[in-house]
């Protein structure tokens, strides 16, 4: 789900912070702030998409969502 993306972003941010500490530069922390902004946008869009999918299909099973065409018109 979307939670795993959070975990991956977090691990990337952790690596940036460790690199910033290792080389004594503030650039890694700047990059972590950018990662934070990207994560916030991604969560907002992803949760809006999940709500729309749930309204359309009444399920969140990804295998049930296999049509591009809107056939329940």
């Amino acid at each position: 789900m979307l939670m795993s993306i959070e975990i991956m972003f977090n691990s990337a941010g952790l690596v940036f912070i460790i690199a910033a500490r290792h080389w004594d530069q503030p650039d890694g922390q700047v990059m972590f702030i950018f990662i934070l902004a990207v994560t916030a946008v991604e969560v907002a869009i992803g949760l809006a998409l999940i709500l729309q999918v749930y309204h359309h299909f009444k399920t969140l099973d990804v295998d049930a969502i296999n049509k591009l065409k809107d056939d329940n018109s």
Binding site: F34, A37, V41, E42, A44, A48, Q52
Partner: peptide
């Protein structure tokens, strides 16, 4: 660029919601 991305996120979330 991050500000533009946040703006696009706001507009997209409003449009989807």
């Amino acid at each position: 660029i991050a500000g533009i991305l946040l703006m696009a996120g706001v507009i997209g979330a409003y449009h989807l919601g």
